[in-house]
């Protein structure tokens, strides 16, 4: 099949269907509602479950239930709804269940507006709920990746029995680009070693996040941390652009990284050795890649639609406070000239 013109939010559902996703639970919220609409169009026809829940909390708890039954479950929302889901995400992480949540970030705080922003960085990457846990966070920057990363998120969620978040924004959700459909569809099996299916094979399984014994809860926490360490070792992903001889490195993800990439080309034309470091995973954050560049003497500029949330991680990885920031938030995209001014200042 030739590539089809598809919107980012639709690509999420295409990826989810190919990934064997069984269930979708959602609540209307702009700019993520099209994921709900597409799920309602396709899921029932393909024999899968779709519910528009009565609230964001209800939706995430339906996710918790279906995930506990071993199914592949998807939820989607945007900033205010993600905040409401945090309690459920913490429980899902604590109970070590797999699920995928797509966050089409909008401008905040509070109701904010429906323009794009990347300010859900902290509540996604730093785990916005209670307790010591982490969600796996993937950061697409194209319609193709909205599909592919949704599939990848299911792989990782099941590999580690952990929530995985696809962190996008209003522009990625709504823009239309050619999409090559996945070549193969996943046919999932229920893993009876942990899922609860209401039959004798899974009778011994218990889904819970409670442990009143302090020693046991401590052990469980250490086990979770060991899992996050394995995720850091095995799943960290990033991609570079013109980094070979770069002296100034823009660090950027999602829709901002596409603007940053254009800025790299323009800076090169002006004779400045700029490059782009683009994290594909935000948790785990690609620290080693940045550290290596830092040791080679590169200087960094974080380009993000939030108030330096990611810059904190870049600073930590680079081992220096001296990381520039090009930021814009409130519903507008970063302008090319903002980035160029900063590059010239650093160069």
């Amino acid at each position: 099949m030739p590539a089809q013109l598809v919107a980012g939010n639709s690509a999420v559902i295409i990826g989810a269907m190919y990934a064997g996703c069984d269930c979708f639970f959602g609540y209307p919220i702009t700019p993520a509602s099209e994921i709900l609409h597409e799920a309602s169009r396709f899921f029932p026809r393909a024999g899968r479950k779709f519910v528009q829940a009565e609230s964001e909390e209800a939706a995430i708890n339906m996710v918790y239930g279906a995930a506990g039954a071993g199914h592949r479950v998807l939820a989607a929302s945007s900033g205010p709804g993600m905040s409401l889901k945090q309690e459920g995400i913490s429980y899902i992480a604590g109970a070590e269940l797999p699920c995928v949540i797509v966050d089409i970030c909008r401008a905040g705080p509070g109701l904010g507006n429906i323009g794009p922003e990347q300010s859900d960085y902290n509540q996604a990457v730093k785990s916005g709920g209670h307790g010591c846990y982490n969600s796996i966070v993937l950061a697409p920057n194209s319609v193709q990746e909205m599909c592919d990363f949704t599939m990848k998120a299911f792989d990782l969620a099941f590999k580690y029995r952990n929530p995985a978040i696809v962190l996008a924004d209003g522009v990625l959700g709504h823009m239309v680009e050619p999409l090559n459909f996945p070549e193969e569809a996943v046919v999932p099996n229920i893993d009876t070693s942990w899922a609860v299916s209401g039959n004798s094979a899974t009778r011994h399984n218990l889904v819970t996040s409670i442990d009143l014994d302090f020693e046991e809860m401590e052990k469980h926490n250490l086990k979770l941390q060991a899992k996050y360490d394995r995720i850091k070792q095995n799943e960290t992903a990033w991609t570079g652009y013109r980094l070979e001889d770069a002296e100034i490195v823009l660090v950027s993800y999602g829709i901002s990284s596409r603007i940053a990439r254009s800025a790299v080309d323009r800076a090169r034309r002006e004779g400045m050795k700029a490059g782009l470091f683009r994290p594909l995973t935000l948790f785990p954050f690609p620290e080693a890649g940045i550290r290596e560049l830092s040791e080679k003497g590169c200087r960094f500029i974080s380009v993000e639609m939030s108030n330096g949330m990611m810059r904190e991680d870049v600073r930590r990885a680079a081992g220096t406070e001296d990381v520039g920031l090009v930021a814009r938030y409130g519903g507008n995209l970063i302008r090319m000239d903002q980035i160029m001014d900063k590059i010239r200042e650093v160069a």
Partner: peptide, 22 residues
């Protein structure tokens, strides 16, 4: 749901065809 452009709500009649109930 008007602001999010047309999904069913708790008082929509049965059979209501909205964007999330095609």
């Amino acid at each position: 749901y008007g602001l999010t452009t047309g999904q069913f709500t708790p008082t929509s009649p049965p059979g209501f065809k909205g964007k999330s109930t095609p």
